[in-house]
């Protein structure tokens, strides 16, 4: 790939990540600017410090926003914003 094609691919992921961040901030009523959250930021425990109740809220929000049901997924899908992006938009994954 050329560097411009790589930039375009990166922009695609950033757009999905940005959508996820805005959704989390809005649904969970967080005070933080969505752009302040990094793509690698952990969501639970350290990082955004969400808890299990927040997960339930996120399941519903993700299905409403992206049409993807994650109810039976392992906690790993919430490992970071970028990991969640892979789940809601699988074609972002390397090699996809």
């Amino acid at each position: 790939m050329t560097v411009d094609e790589l930039r375009a691919k990166a922009a695609e992921r950033r757009q999905t990540c940005s959508q996820i961040k805005k959704m989390i901030v809005s649904r969970l009523d967080l005070e933080v600017d969505p752009d302040w959250i990094t793509d690698d930021q952990p969501l639970f425990g350290r990082g955004l410090e969400l808890d299990s109740l927040d997960v339930l809220e996120l399941y519903v929000a993700i299905e409403a926003e992206f049409g993807v049901a994650l109810y039976d997924s392992e906690m790993a899908v919430f490992g970071s914003i970028s990991r969640l992006a892979d789940e809601v938009d699988p074609h972002l994954r390397a090699g996809a």
Partner: peptide
């Protein structure tokens, strides 16, 4: 503009892939 997971880059002649964090899923999560 290139700090994103899933890209094929090159480091010292070797092909590398940028990653989604966490790179290893801790066993404690399950």
């Amino acid at each position: 503009g290139l700090a994103a997971a899933g890209l094929e880059l090159t480091v010292e002649g070797a092909d590398v892939t940028t990653l989604t964090s966490p790179y290893i899923v801790p066993k404690s999560w399950s």
